[in-house]
């Protein structure tokens, strides 16, 4: 790509890879969590809701540091993963994906939860009286009605994952080709003389990706409304 230099392109490609993995891996958990928060009635629901939203409010550097403590090679989870599965995430691109997924999780859950709450549980009751098992009710009634909301949540999470900086740089540092995503690259370019042009090109890429994500997720949210209304 002529617009971007090789270093810049490497950062963009890495960001895309990290964001894709982050969204793909967190999607089932996000959907499950959204269902739990929208439909579940159990003690501690509000606490769980608070924990899910925590990464949105905490300073990203704190989230990154907590990840480092937990998933570092000497951390309890990181040590377990390395000794049992041989998986190391600290200072790897997979670690960047983990940080991005955690930071994007609240946005994803929020969009999906709103879609689930707009579905009338009476429709699910009606499906059950027609002989549909719970699984069939979910697959044929709930999921089709909330699908645009699920897609909107995934897109928002993707955009957030593309732009994650604070937790990523704290957890997995800023290693070119491994963990230097677009925001980290912009930061790095701004630290060296003559890097402004590269930084600016990456800024343009970031703005375009973010805008596209917002537009698409807005369109999807409207589609939920239309679907639920039966138009």
């Amino acid at each position: 790509m002529a617009f971007l230099g090789p270093d810049e392109w490497q950062a963009v490609a890495l960001s895309l890879k990290v964001a894709c993995l982050a969204v793909a891996a967190s999607l089932p958990f996000g959907l499950g969590m959204a269902l739990l928060l929208a439909r579940g009635r159990f003690p501690g629901r509000h606490l769980l809701n608070g924990i899910v939203h925590l990464p949105l409010i905490l300073p990203p550097v704190v989230t990154g540091y907590v990840l480092l403590l937990g998933f570092g090679r000497r951390g309890p989870i990181g040590g377990f993963l390395e000794s049992v599965f041989g998986i190391v995430v600290a200072f790897r691109w997979t670690g960047a994906a983990l940080a991005a997924a955690i930071m994007a999780f609240p946005l994803m859950v929020r969009a999906m939860r709103l879609a689930i709450e707009s579905v009338d549980p009476g429709l699910e009751e009606a499906a059950a009286t027609l002989g549909a098992s719970r699984l069939r009710v979910f697959l044929t009634v709930t999921l089709p009605l909330i699908l645009p909301g699920v897609i909107a949540g995934a897109i928002l999470a993707f955009a957030k994952a593309m732009g994650e900086f604070g937790a990523t740089i704290t957890f997995v540092s800023n290693i070119p080709g491994e963990t230097r995503t677009v925001p980290s690259a912009i930061y790095a370019f701004l630290q060296v003389p003559g890097g402004e042009a590269s930084a600016l090109r990456l800024v343009v890429v970031s703005v375009v990706v973010a805008m596209a994500a917002l537009v698409v997720s807005e369109v999807m949210a409207r589609r939920v409304t239309a679907r639920v209304a039966g138009r």
Binding site: L123, A127, L145, R227, V228, G230, R231
Partner: peptide, 10 residues
């Protein structure tokens, strides 16, 4: 048959 119909909108 419910009072409010409850047809599947999709």
């Amino acid at each position: 048959v419910f009072q409010d119909g409850r047809l599947f909108p999709h």
